[in-house]
Amino acid sequence: MTVDVGSRLRFVRERQGLSQRELSKRAGVTNSTISLIEAGRMNPSIGALKRILDGIPVGLSEFFAIVPEASSRFFYTADELTEIGKGLISYRQVGERVFGKTLQILSETYQPGADTGRVPLMHEGQEGAVVISGRLEVTVEGRVRVLGPGDAYYFESHKPHRFRCVGQEPCRLISACTPPSF
């Protein structure tokens, strides 16, 4: 059985009401370390994980014994989506949390000029989306395409990719990612 340390860490941190920045201060590690672990881009050593968990505080055995709570909810109104992004890109997640889940669905909004960054994103899994409004420039493995309403993308997420809103209006899309990457 594979344990998703990143999602588990995010769940435990959020359950304690801690930001990534606060946990990094408490644990004596960089904020980027916490972010990389939670995004599944870094696997910490047992010693590093113990130091991070001491900042919560929670023991290793308790951390690995946590069983995700099954949600009894099936439906969500627009104002019940969970905001997990800030700034020029809004990521509104369907459901309260994705810990223990294999699929993440997002309602994304990119403000004009918003960009995921010059360094391409790469992670395990697959992702896809349908553009609802506006125009989104999508780059995958160096190939660039501008997508408009009704257009879509789907690719293996380990391929370097980047997103950028082009045009004068915000771009809205509905996306899905497996496994969850936020």
Rank of each mutant, 00 (worst) to 15 (best):
I66K: 06
M122S: 15
F99P: 02
G100Q: 08
V144H: 05
R97H: 09
A129G: 15
T82Q: 11
Y110V: 03
V98Y: 08
A129I: 02
F63M: 09
F75P: 00
R97V: 03
L81S: 01
A129H: 05
V131C: 05
R73Y: 08
F74N: 07
E108V: 15
Q93W: 03
E108R: 00
D79Q: 08
F75M: 12
R145P: 00
V67Y: 00
V144T: 15
G117M: 06
P120A: 13
G117K: 04
E83I: 01
L121Q: 09
G85L: 11
V144C: 11
T82F: 01
A129W: 06
G142C: 03
H123N: 08
I105N: 08
G128W: 05
S71C: 11
S71H: 09
G87R: 09
S133H: 00
V67R: 13
G85N: 09
A65N: 14
G100I: 11
G95Y: 07
L106N: 12
V119I: 11
A114E: 08
I66F: 11
E127I: 02
R135T: 06
E141P: 00
M122T: 15
K101Q: 15
L106H: 06
G95V: 06
S90N: 08
L106T: 09
L88R: 13
E69Q: 13
L60S: 11
G125R: 04
T109I: 14
V94T: 10
Y76W: 15
L103A: 07
F99G: 05
K86N: 09
E108F: 01
P68R: 08
G87K: 11
G100Y: 08
T139E: 14
T116Q: 04
V98R: 12
F99Q: 06
V67A: 12
L88A: 15
G134C: 05
E137G: 00
Q126K: 12
F64K: 07
G134N: 02
G125C: 08
G87P: 06
K86G: 13
T116L: 05
Y110S: 02
V140W: 04
E69M: 06
G128A: 14
E80Q: 14
F75Y: 10
Y91V: 07
G117C: 07
V131M: 06
V119W: 00
L121D: 07
E83C: 04
E62L: 05
S90E: 12
S72Q: 15
A65M: 06
A70H: 07
T82N: 08
G117W: 05
E62S: 14
F75R: 12
R97L: 01
E127V: 04
V67H: 09
G100F: 09
R145A: 15
L60K: 02
F74W: 06
R92D: 10
L121S: 07
G128L: 07
L136T: 04
R135S: 10
Q104R: 11
K86T: 15
F74V: 08
V130Y: 07
R118S: 14
F74S: 10
V138D: 04
R143S: 13
K101E: 14
L88W: 05
V98Q: 10
M122Q: 15
T116H: 04
E96Q: 13
R73S: 15
G87M: 13
V130K: 03
R92W: 05
V140M: 04
I84C: 03
L81V: 02
F63R: 04
D115L: 03
R143K: 15
A65E: 14
A114L: 10
R135G: 00
R92L: 12
H123L: 12
E62I: 02
R97F: 01
I132D: 02
